[in-house]
């Protein structure tokens, strides 16, 4: 390589970095703006250098002074802690239910040769594409007639019947596990249940973690479920509570952003701790 070529390469690199940095502004800006707003007071938002007549200035992003009050006030006004407890409870139960039941079903599909198994498996894949709207009304009517309206049961019980996507993911994973151990265990008289709990599950921790993470996110973000089934405001989840907060007549941006921040923070922290699991899951699923 001549020095001329490496100079061009160098210049390309500089150009690429510059491009990447400029393109990073749109994804980051709303988040920075959220954090900044959550640390300001009314006066800082509506007067100092922050009206559309004067235009945006970078220095306005830095709160002067920092106002921490929005956080405790948002906690109070939104009953954040109550909603957090409700949400965590729902998350915990749905993670347990959907991962557990999906793993059991996946063992059936992935490791046992039974009649029509491929038919059922294909049917299960097909249900993934069925829009939720089609089944929504009869399911609502069913839960209502069981007297479950206003309780968490409609949000929790379906989780225990397996989630097609998790079943698919785990089935594929279980198939990749070597069958020698399982066979020798079988010869020794171990039942399928023993093989499943003692052999397969311990070997499948990464796949189970991916499912658990996505079950958690699904429950954390779920908006439609609580909207349809919860009536008592003490039972609201965070996602639903946040929407109610937005919908309130008076609009306190600082508190809204503080609340949004506290709603997002656990997910972002989780993301940085489990980045690999996240990406793995997204890359295999094709989306949220």
């Amino acid at each position: 390589m001549t020095s001329n070529e490496s100079a061009i390469k160098q210049r390309q690199k500089v150009f690429l970095y510059a491009l990447l940095i400029i393109l990073s502004i749109p994804p980051l800006m709303p988040l920075i703006w959220m954090v900044s707003t959550s640390l300001k007071n009314d006066a800082q938002i509506y007067t100092t250098g922050g009206t559309s007549t004067s235009g945006f200035s970078l220095s306005s992003l830095w709160p002067k002074p920092f106002v921490w009050n929005n956080y405790p006030e948002a906690l109070e006004r939104m009953s954040f802690m109550v909603y957090l407890r409700n949400t965590l409870f729902i998350c915990f139960v749905t993670v347990l239910g959907s991962v557990g039941s999906s793993a059991v079903v996946a063992y059936g599909f992935g490791r046992i040769n039974f009649k029509f198994s491929s038919f059922w498996f294909a049917l299960m894949l097909a249900t993934m594409a069925l829009p939720g709207q089609v089944t929504m009304i009869p399911i609502f009517s069913l839960f209502r007639s069981l007297g479950w309206y206003g309780t968490y049961l409609p949000l929790l019980v379906p989780a225990f019947f397996g989630s097609p996507f998790f079943i698919f993911l785990l089935t594929q994973f279980f198939k990749t596990l070597p069958s020698e151990f399982a066979e020798s265990a079988k010869v020794d008289g171990a039942s399928d249940w023993t093989i499943f709990t003692r052999l397969i599950l311990p070997l499948s921790k990464p796949a189970l973690a991916t499912c658990a993470l996505f079950a958690f996110l699904g429950a954390w973000n779920d908006f439609l479920g609580p909207l349809l089934y919860l009536s008592d405001s003490r039972k609201y989840t965070l996602a639903y509570g946040l929407q109610q907060f937005v919908g309130n007549h008076y609009m306190n941006w600082m508190q809204l952003m503080a609340a949004s921040m506290m709603f997002i923070a656990p997910i972002v922290i989780l993301f940085f701790f489990a980045q690999k699991t996240f990406i793995q899951g997204i890359a295999t699923t094709g989306g949220k």
């Binding site: 393109l23 990073s24 994804p27 980051l28 709303p30 988040l31 703006w33 959220m34 707003t37 938002i45 509506y46 922050g50 009206t51 559309s52 996110l217 954390w220 973000n221 908006f223 996602a239 639903y240 946040l242 929407q243 907060f245 937005v246 941006w253 809204l256 952003m257 949004s260 709603f263 997002i264 997910i267 972002v268 993301f271 996240f278 990406i279 997204i282 949220k288």
Partner: peptide
């Protein structure tokens, strides 16, 4: 950085956008 917005829960994304698209401020 580019991936980050997609993990923000939809309800929060919407509330952030309602604010950044606020007409005056």
């Amino acid at each position: 950085i580019f991936y980050l917005p997609s993990i923000v829960p939809m309800v929060a994304t919407t509330s952030i956008f309602i604010w950044i698209l606020s007409p005056q401020v």
